[in-house]
C-alpha cells in the first residue's frame, strides 16, 4: 500500500469509529442488537499486513471503542483475537501467491461470494467472542446466543452496505 492509501485508511477509520461510538452505540434498537460496525476496518486491512502491525491496529481500535463504552479490555481483547484468527485463516487456507499481492478484501478486489462469506464468518466470530466475554459465564446462554445472532446479522448487513458504497466511490475516483 502506498502512503495515499494509508492516509485514506486512517481517515475512513476515524469516520467509521465515530459512527460506531457516536451513533450505533447509542441506537438502543432492542436488547439484542449491538452491532459492531468498526470491525469492517479490521477485516479489510491488506491481507499481507505484518502480524505485529495488525495486532497493534486491532488493539488500538478496540481500546478506542472501549473508552467510549466504559468497558476497558472487552473490545480490545475481542479485536486482537479476531485479528489472530484472521492470520490463522490467511496463513493456512489461502493461496500463498494471492496472499503476496496484498489486496484489501472488498467487493471489487475479490470474488463477491467469497467476500460475503468472509465478512459473515469473521463478523459472527467477533460477536461470539464479544458477547461470551461480556457475559463472562455460560448462564443466560439463550440471550447471549440471541445477541450474537441479531447483532451479527445487522452488522453483516451494515458492513456489506458500507463496503458496497465505499467501493463505488473508489472506482469512480480512478
Amino acid at each position: 500500500m502506498e502512503t495515499r492509501d494509508w492516509v485514506r485508511l486512517v481517515l475512513s477509520g476515524f469516520v467509521i469509529l465515530a459512527i460506531q461510538v457516536l451513533v450505533i452505540n447509542n441506537l438502543n434498537l432492542n436488547q439484542y442488537m449491538f452491532p459492531q460496525l468498526y470491525i469492517l476496518l479490521l477485516i479489510t486491512l491488506p491481507i499481507n499486513l505484518k502480524h505485529w502491525v495488525g495486532y497493534l491496529i486491532a488493539f488500538a481500535l478496540g481500546f478506542a471503542v472501549d473508552s467510549f463504552s466504559y468497558t476497558p479490555g472487552l473490545q480490545s481483547f475481542t479485536a486482537v483475537s479476531v485479528m489472530f484468527l484472521r492470520y490463522v485463516y490467511f496463513n493456512n487456507l489461502v493461496d500463498k501467491e494471492w496472499l503476496s499481492t496484498g489486496v484489501r478484501p472488498s467487493f471489487t478486489s475479490v470474488d463477491s461470494g467469497w467476500f460475503v462469506a468472509y465478512v459473515g464468518i469473521f463478523t459472527l466470530v467477533f460477536h461470539t467472542i464479544l458477547f461470551f466475554l461480556e457475559n463472562f459465564s455460560f448462564t443466560h446462554l439463550g440471550s447471549t446466543l440471541l445477541k450474537i445472532l441479531y447483532s451479527s446479522s445487522l452488522a453483516i448487513f451494515l458492513i456489506l452496505l458500507f463496503t458496497f458504497t465505499f467501493n463505488r466511490e473508489t472506482t469512480n475516483d480512478s
Binding site: A58, F59, D66, T71, P72, L74, S76, F77, V80, L133
Partner: peptide, 9 residues
C-alpha cells in the same frame, strides 16, 4: 496485548 486486555477487563 491479550494480557493487557484481560487485566483491564
Amino acid at each position: 496485548l491479550q494480557g493487557i486486555s484481560l487485566f483491564a477487563l
